[in-house]
């Protein structure tokens, strides 16, 4: 599996926050989701990849090219949607499309018009009058209209209503599945990532806490509900964040396949129940674990 994006010991220190020597390889042709609480370093990481800020140390390679030396070539092949959208706001979407078309080697004006139409963006209206969600959609339209091999999105769905959000997510999924594009998407709406991601990166406090395939993650993390004193000590040891209340206890495990055997008896007698987790349950466990 070839990696399209490689971060090597990437380090950036701010007064209040440190992105701490991150290593990451994003495989080509898949959707990788970047999950983390606010302030975990998702945006910093993405800005470093896009060479919008300078790293203190460490390296970024995109398509095997050094990201600072080959900036123009890389940005030509990357579709980027940032956490904030910037345009010449006195101008229209049509003007913007024409303006940026001069800089991308593979700009497709028909595709751009198609996305404007599909996202219901009035091409002649000043961007200043667009809503936040419309600006995100315009940014997406630009990102998708120059045949990018890698699509990097920083919280793209946060300003969108659920209907458009779903549409955007499906669009990205199709890009990865059918057109073999690579997608790196950060979001705190884990729902979006759960639907389309193949790989998940959890960032907590400037570090990568977990990097695994989604399926692997969801089959090894489980929520366990149990009657007090009904589980063996070995199980109890692998449970995190055990909460006990009047009607039983609940914990989360990251080693379900390991403890599964010890649970069968409790499960059949009804004193233990195992439940699938969502990506946000894992996030909460990771954040509270610190």
């Amino acid at each position: 599996m070839e990696s399209v994006l490689r971060l090597h010991q990437l380090h950036k220190a701010y007064a209040e926050f440190v992105l701490d020597h991150i290593d990451l390889e994003v495989p080509g042709g898949y959707v990788t989701g970047l999950i983390g609480p606010n302030g975990a370093g998702k945006t910093t990481t993405i800005k470093l990849i896009m060479n919008l800020i300078r790293a203190d140390s460490g390296g970024v390679e995109v398509f095997g090219l050094k990201h600072d030396r080959h900036e123009i070539q890389i940005k030509d092949r990357v579709g980027y949607v940032g956490e904030e959208q910037f345009f010449y706001e006195q101008r229209s979407a049509a003007w913007t499309g024409n303006f940026v078309s001069h800089f991308f080697s593979a700009w497709d004006p028909d595709a751009f018009d198609h996305y404007l139409d599909r996202f219901e963006l009035p091409p002649k209206k000043r961007i200043k009058k667009y809503s936040k969600g419309m600006k995100v959609k315009l940014s997406l339209a630009i990102a998708l209209s120059h045949a990018p091999e890698l699509i990097i999105l920083d919280e793209p769905t946060s300003g969108l209503d659920p209907v458009v959000r779903r549409e955007v997510i499906d669009l990205l999924h199709r890009a990865a599945a059918e057109e073999n594009k690579t997608v790196l998407i950060s979001s705190h709406i884990t729902d979006d990532i759960e639907r389309i991601a193949d790989y998940i990166v959890y960032m907590v406090q400037g570090r990568i806490a977990i990097y695994a395939s989604k399926d692997e993650l969801l089959s090894s993390w489980k929520t366990i509900h149990f009657k007090q004193d009904s589980v063996p000590a070995s199980v109890l040891e692998s449970l995190e964040h055990v909460e006990t209340q009047m009607f039983g206890s609940t914990g989360i495990t990251r080693d379900f396949p390991v403890i599964e055997g010890d649970l069968t008896e409790g499960i059949s007698s009804g004193s233990i129940r195992v439940e699938s987790v969502g990506l946000d349950d894992i996030l909460i466990a990771l954040v509270n674990g610190d």
């Binding site: 919008l52 900036e71 123009i72 940032g82 910037f86 345009f87 010449y88």
Partner: peptide, 14 residues
């Protein structure tokens, strides 16, 4: 005023 640099920096322009 228009944050132009931040827009231009996202484009393939060094």
């Amino acid at each position: 005023k228009t944050n132009a640099y931040r827009f231009l920096r996202t484009l393939p322009l060094g």
